[in-house]
Amino acid sequence: HNLTITQGKLFFHYNPKLCLSEIHKMEEVSGTKGRQERNDIALKTNGDQASCENELLKFSYIRTSFDKILLRWEPYWPPDFRDLLGFMLFYKEAPYQNVTEFDGQDACGSNSWTVVDIDPPLRSNDPKSQNHPGWLMRGLKPWTQYAIFVKTLVTFSDERRTYGAKSDIIYVQTDATNPSVPLDPISVSNSSSQIILKWKPPSDPNGNITHYLVFWERQAEDSELFELDYCLKGLKLPSRTWSPPFESEDSQKHNQSEYEDSAGECCSCPKTDSQILKELEESSFRKTFEDYLHNVVFVPRKTSSGTGAEDPRPSRKRRSLGDVGNVTVAVPTVAAFPNTSSTSVPTSPEEHRPFEKVVNKESLVISGLRHFTGYRIELQACNQDTPEERCSVAAYVSARTMPEAKADDIVGPVTHEIFENNVVHLMWQEPKEPNGLIVLYEVSYRRYGDEELHLCVSRKHFALERGCRLRGLSPGNYSVRIRATSLAGNGSWTEPTYFYVTDYLDVPSNIA
């Protein structure tokens, strides 16, 4: 807008934040220059609390790290170098490059900038070799853009010569660093050979998330399962459950009422301010606690030095998902009996873990797994792929695949051998790939016309006998059925096997 004052003059007093240069501009645009008398524009009460600059400061050096910015700028000295009290560095987070010096300023003089007072450097006698002032900004957020400017702080001049310097606002972004852990990993099994893994992005990506790394490792069953005799009275049979499938998407929606109208769909109840505040506090606490764990609990591995020492970490090797089922080394339970199943799973520490690289999504279907087997899954978020990966501390989750139908069934015939004193040795093959492992066998036998009897055969007993022995049988026709019990439950009964026990007292003698 054009402003013209045809008559009258300007009068400025007691404006401590208004620089004289701005008042002189007002004289020019209003056409009143030359009308004012000496005392109409006070030299001592206008701009006496402001830094009124008329020179431009330029930054000469900028260096960044993930949490620091090192700045240096060209030296500046007023005509009387004693008038320079120091520099004021202003900075704040700036997602967009549209910041002005006066953003967030209120009537009390406060604003949204963080201000650092910096002492002037030592003055050199040689004007050509003056030290460049600077400042190291610490405690910054990774991968965050900051708006920065600097200006001088000078003393009051009796001659009211307006001098000083100020830089333009520059924008500097800190470097990326390792992201925080992925949030809320959930693993479920939808079949006997697959596990579905879902997660949420890290709360602090500290860069642009480029991919996720998912490692999985087959877990050995508890050692007590191999040692305890679950045929003993009072000892509860062990059981394991597989990871249940995901709930429906509708039930997972946030901010939804727990109660549904019987007449149909209901609208979600909005969260109160107290609920939102509580969630923010919980989120802040979780982030602080995660940072504490990362800094205190997890110790970084030592990389190899120039002395030739090897990095103890196993090298990563990509495998196809079809090879995942046989990740671990199978060892027989008892070496003397080769027909026992290889369900003991000690994992070799030198073995390469299978892994998958996930790009542009937060889910993965891990296939080719062994049925009813526990897996430990390790999830890392990465925001750099080359020249070397920059990934987060791992988040861990466990899951067990679903049982395989008929995996616990005894394959092959049940054979028998009759000894003296009416002892019958029953023999059968253990299931080759049971659900988890076989903890015991149930032997059901009966003599024709009598009630059915049951015998429990422990895992250890089966390994020693290759089956079991029935003792003290009365003469007669017998039928026997056997079924295995694994961590997933009972298998199917075998087809009945028949044998006849004679009275050993009636056996004919070869003595003449």
Rank of each mutant, 00 (worst) to 15 (best):
S203K: 15
P205S: 10
P205V: 02
N206H: 09
N206M: 07
N206A: 15
I209K: 15
I209T: 07
I209V: 06
T210W: 15
H211D: 02
Y212T: 13
V214K: 00
V214N: 02
V214L: 10
V214F: 14
V214R: 00
F215W: 04
W216D: 02
E217H: 07
E217R: 03
R218F: 04
Q219K: 13
A220V: 11
E221A: 01
E221D: 05
E221S: 14
E221T: 03
D222G: 07
D222H: 15
L225Y: 08
F226T: 04
F226M: 06
F226Y: 12
E227C: 13
E227T: 06
L228G: 08
L228A: 03
L228H: 06
D229Y: 06
Y230M: 03
C231Y: 01
L232W: 08
K233S: 10
K233E: 04
G234K: 08
L235Y: 07
L235G: 04
L235Q: 05
K236W: 04
K236N: 05
K236R: 13
K236L: 09
P238T: 05
S239K: 15
R240F: 07
W242F: 03
W242S: 12
S243P: 10
P244W: 10
P245E: 03
P245N: 08
P245Y: 13
F246R: 11
F246T: 10
E247Q: 11
E247W: 13
S248Q: 04
E249R: 04
E249S: 09
D250N: 10
D250Q: 13
S251R: 06
H254W: 07
N255D: 09
N255P: 14
N255F: 07
Q256Y: 07
S257W: 06
S257E: 06
Y259R: 13
E260G: 07
S262Y: 10
A263H: 05
G264H: 13
G264Y: 14
E265D: 05
E265T: 13
E265R: 06
E265A: 13
C266M: 02
C266G: 03
C267G: 02
S268P: 14
S268L: 11
S268Y: 04
S268V: 08
C269A: 02
C269L: 04
C269K: 01
P270F: 09
P270V: 04
K271C: 03
S274R: 11
S274F: 10
S274P: 02
Q275P: 02
Q275E: 13
Q275T: 06
I276E: 01
K278M: 08
E279I: 05
L280N: 06
E281K: 05
E282G: 05
S283F: 12
S284M: 14
S284P: 02
F285N: 02
R286N: 02
R286F: 02
K287R: 09
T288K: 08
F289I: 02
E290D: 15
D291E: 03
D291P: 02
D291F: 01
Y292N: 02
H294S: 15
H294K: 03
N295P: 00
N295D: 08
V296Y: 09
V297Y: 03
V297N: 02
P300E: 06
P300N: 10
R301A: 02
K302N: 14
K302M: 12
K302Q: 14
K302D: 11
T303F: 15
S304V: 14
S304F: 14
S304D: 11
T307D: 15
T307F: 10
T307Y: 15
G308D: 09
G308F: 10
G308H: 11
A309I: 08
D311E: 14
P312Y: 11
P312S: 13
P314L: 06
S315G: 11
S315A: 14
R316S: 10
R316W: 15
R316I: 15
K317T: 09
K317W: 04
K317G: 06
R318S: 08
R318I: 12
R318Y: 11
R319L: 06
S320C: 08
S320L: 09
S320G: 14
S320K: 14
S320F: 12
L321C: 04
G325R: 05
V327W: 03
V327R: 13
T328C: 13
V331F: 13
P332L: 11
P332S: 11
V334G: 13
V334T: 15
A335P: 13
A336N: 04
F337D: 07
P338A: 08
P338E: 07
N339W: 07
N339A: 10
N339H: 10
T340G: 04
T340Q: 08
S341F: 08
S342C: 10
S344P: 11
V345A: 12
T347F: 08
P349Q: 07
E351L: 12
E351M: 07
H352F: 09
R353H: 08
P354T: 11
P354C: 10
P354D: 10
P354W: 05
F355C: 14
F355W: 12
F355S: 11
F355Y: 08
E356S: 13
E356M: 15
K357V: 15
V359R: 13
K361I: 11
E362V: 11
V365A: 10
I366S: 01
S367Y: 04
G368M: 07
G368L: 10
L369A: 10
R370Q: 12
R370A: 15
H371D: 15
F372P: 00
F372R: 04
G374S: 07
G374F: 13
G374K: 09
Y375H: 10
Y375V: 09
R376E: 03
I377F: 09
E378A: 09
E378H: 07
L379S: 03
L379K: 00
L379E: 00
Q380K: 11
A381T: 13
A381K: 00
A381Y: 01
T386Y: 10
T386H: 09
E388Q: 14
E388C: 13
E388L: 14
E389N: 11
E389C: 12
E389D: 07
R390E: 02
R390L: 07
R390W: 11
C391Q: 13
C391M: 10
C391F: 03
S392A: 01
V393E: 05
V393M: 11
A394L: 05
A395K: 04
Y396V: 15
Y396M: 15
V397I: 01
V397Q: 07
S398V: 07
S398Y: 15
R400F: 04
R400A: 08
R400G: 08
T401N: 04
M402F: 02
P403W: 07
E404I: 10
K406L: 09
K406A: 12
I410P: 13
G412S: 15
G412V: 05
P413G: 13
P413H: 15
V414Q: 06
T415F: 09
H416Q: 11
I418Y: 15
I418F: 13
I418L: 08
F419Y: 15
N421L: 10
H425R: 09
L426R: 01
M427Q: 08
M427F: 14
Q429R: 03
Q429E: 14
E430T: 08
E430M: 04
P431T: 03
K432V: 07
E433Q: 07
E433L: 14
N435F: 01
N435S: 07
G436L: 11
L437R: 04
L437T: 00
I438G: 01
V439P: 05
V439T: 09
Y441K: 00
Y441I: 01
E442A: 10
V443P: 01
S444R: 03
Y445C: 10
R446L: 10
R447Q: 14
Y448R: 13
Y448V: 10
Y448W: 07
Y448F: 15
E451P: 15
E452D: 15
E452L: 13
L453T: 15
H454W: 02
H454I: 15
L455E: 04
L455A: 09
C456E: 01
C456T: 01
S458N: 07
S458C: 14
K460C: 14
H461W: 13
F462N: 07
A463Q: 12
E465A: 09
E465Y: 14
E465M: 12
G467N: 05
G467E: 04
C468K: 12
R469Y: 07
L470I: 15
R471N: 05
G472R: 07
G472I: 08
L473P: 03
L473S: 02
S474Q: 14
S474D: 09
S474G: 11
S474E: 11
P475I: 12
G476F: 00
G476W: 00
G476I: 00
N477A: 11
N477W: 08
Y478A: 01
S479N: 05
S479T: 11
I482L: 04
I482N: 00
R483K: 12
R483D: 00
T485A: 12
L487P: 07
L487H: 00
L487N: 06
G489L: 02
N490D: 03
N490V: 03
S492L: 10
W493T: 10
T494D: 02
T494L: 04
E495A: 14
E495T: 15
E495L: 03
Y498L: 05
F499A: 06
F499Q: 02
F499E: 01
Y500N: 04
V501H: 05
V501T: 07
V501L: 07
T502S: 14
T502M: 14
T502K: 06
D503M: 05
D503G: 02
Y504W: 11
L505Q: 06
D506E: 04
D506C: 03
V507M: 11
P508V: 14
S509M: 09
S509L: 14
N510A: 12
